[in-house]
Amino acid sequence: MKTQHLLLPFALLGMPTAAIPAASCWGYSGESAPENWSKLDPAFAACEKGVYQSPINIRNAIKGKLPPLSLSFTAKKNALVHNGHTLQINVADGDKLRLDNQDFTLQQCHFHMPSENLIDGKSYPLEAHFVYRNDQNQLAVVGVMFVKGEANTAIAYLLRNLPRQINVAVPLTAAFSLASLLPKNKSYYRFSGSLTTPPCTEGVRWLILRQPVELSAAQINAFSAALGIRNNRPVHPLHGRMVVTE
Rank of each mutant, 00 (worst) to 15 (best):
Q136D: 14
H129P: 03
N161H: 14
P42E: 07
G149R: 06
L172D: 04
N83Q: 05
I155S: 03
N232L: 07
D103W: 10
P55Y: 03
T105R: 14
P183G: 08
S194K: 08
K49Y: 10
Q165I: 01
H5N: 10
A22G: 08
V91W: 02
Q102E: 14
K65Y: 11
Y124K: 03
L159E: 02
D120G: 06
A19P: 01
T17D: 07
P34G: 05
L227V: 06
F130D: 11
V170P: 01
F104H: 14
L97K: 11
D95W: 01
F44K: 03
R98E: 12
A19R: 08
H129Q: 15
T201E: 10
G14L: 09
K186N: 04
E31H: 05
E127D: 11
P199F: 02
A33Y: 01
S187G: 05
S29H: 07
A179M: 10
I166H: 00
A18M: 03
A225W: 06
I119N: 04
A33R: 10
P34V: 07
Q108V: 04
L40R: 06
L6M: 11
N117Y: 10
G228C: 07
N137C: 05
V235L: 04
A61G: 11
N36I: 00
P234I: 13
A75D: 15
P163Y: 01
S29D: 15
Y132M: 13
C200E: 08
K2Q: 12
V243I: 15
V91E: 02
G240Q: 09
N90D: 13
P42F: 00
F104N: 14
Y28L: 12
G228L: 07
A45Y: 13
L207A: 07
L13N: 11
G14I: 10
S70D: 14
P199H: 04
L182W: 08
G203W: 00
A179V: 05
R59I: 06
M145I: 05
K39T: 12
R233K: 15
C25L: 12
L7I: 10
L87K: 00
F146N: 05
A46L: 15
C47H: 07
V51H: 03
A174M: 03
L99W: 15
V235S: 09
N167L: 04
M1L: 12
L178N: 14
K148F: 00
Q4M: 03
V168Q: 00
I58R: 04
C47K: 07
I89E: 00
W206E: 15
G193K: 07
A33W: 00
L172P: 09
E214D: 13
P21W: 01
A226V: 04
C47M: 07
I62E: 14
D120V: 08
P16G: 12
T197D: 05
Q219A: 09
N221R: 15
L66N: 11
L215S: 09
M1T: 13
F73Y: 11
G203C: 10
I58G: 10
Y157W: 02
